[in-house]
């Protein structure tokens, strides 16, 4: 797409995003807020998946660690947002520093180990009920407030999330285009070559893992202020795997892809669960369908369909 066309598209999207709460009701505003938040989570997964070639299935851990930390600080210790929110991101990032150990491994081992790590965090949220509130979790999280400025409604919060997500997308764009980001793609393409060129691949992947965990933590903080409560579901395996699926559906290695994927998944869930009780099955079928028919996401699927149409037209 030419540059002018892209700018026009971006401006249209931005205008639509800004106008949405004025035009649509609270239901849609809320749903789109969630789409931004989970899109950000999917984006954090994709830093590893799309750029470094690591398939992490423990990102719900950072998301939940941040959400719990912020919630507990706000609700139980009445810590103000200005401290509780950064503390949440910090806690999630610290967890990423520990779980980043997983980059000692690659391939299947990495996948399995991140699953296991994810379960530890879920298990702690679930079993350490004296501190985490067990299955009930932590409730009554207030809207964020910094000094005299406070968020009063879901509409206002929508704009806050939009601003944060846009900033993150911008920073992410620079990061993946930087020497650091290029090195990640180099590692994905050929780790043996990268080592022989002088890259400490393990350290590079570890750094990417931590940055990715920090981004997921930020999504967790945004989530807890939207949701107003957090329970062990936030740390559960389905959250991790759905975040990965969002990135894959939208197309890995892009910035809009994870957000498109998040829109599709959340939209689908909302729609299906309104009339069908077995929506987990539908989600499962989506997983299967994506693997079988759109392994490189909608972008890839569109490309293949176009190629087939052209072939049919030519033949």
């Amino acid at each position: 797409m030419p540059r002018a066309g892209r700018i026009a598209l971006a401006l249209t999207a931005l205008t639509a995003a800004v106008l949405l709460p004025q035009v649509a009701g609270p239901f849609w505003t809320g749903l789109v807020t969630q789409m931004y938040i989970f899109g950000l989570l999917a984006l954090s997964v994709d830093l590893l998946l799309g750029h470094a070639g690591l398939f992490s299935l423990c990102h719900a851990s950072f998301f939940a660690m941040a959400a719990y930390t912020t919630a507990i600080l706000q609700v139980r210790y009445a810590v103000p947002t200005a401290l509780a929110a950064p503390a949440g991101v910090l806690a999630g990032t610290l967890l990423a520093l520990v779980l980043g150990l997983a980059v000692r491994t690659r391939g299947v081992y990495f996948i399995l180990i991140t699953i296991a790590f994810g379960y530890v965090v879920w298990g702690v949220a679930h079993r350490w009920s004296s501190f985490t509130g067990g299955d009930n979790g932590v409730t009554n999280v207030p809207f964020p407030a910094v000094g005299a400025w406070r968020v009063e409604s879901h509409t206002e919060y929508y704009y806050l999330v939009l601003a944060v997500v846009l900033l993150c997308a911008l920073g992410y764009r620079i990061l993946v285009a930087s020497p650091f980001g290029l090195a990640l793609r180099g590692i994905k393409a050929s780790e043996t070559r990268m080592r022989s060129l002088g890259f400490a691949c393990g350290l590079h992947l570890y750094a990417a893992f931590v940055v990715s965990g920090a981004l997921a933590s930020l999504a967790g903080v945004l989530y807890v202020y939207y949701n107003r409560f957090v329970n062990p579901v936030a740390a559960s395996f389905p959250v991790s795997v759905e975040a990965a699926l969002m990135a894959i559906i939208g197309g890995t290695g892009t910035i809009v892809g994870p957000f498109i994927g998040s829109w599709i998944m959340l939209g689908l869930r909302n729609w299906v669960s309104s009339f069908f009780a077995l929506y987990a099955s539908v989600m499962g079928l989506v997983f299967i369908a994506v693997v079988l028919w759109a392994p490189d996401g909608l972008v890839g699927l569109a490309g293949r369909l176009r190629a087939r149409a052209q072939k049919a037209g030519a033949g």
Binding site: F55, L57, G107, V108, I111, P238, V241, A244, L245, I248, A280, S281, M283, G284, L285, V286, F287, I288, V290, V291, L292, P295
Partner: peptide, 14 residues
């Protein structure tokens, strides 16, 4: 393996 994991997770959900 990535496809296998996603696919079989989907199967497990169903």
């Amino acid at each position: 393996h990535l496809a296998q994991v996603l696919l079989t997770v989907g199967v497990a959900f169903v």
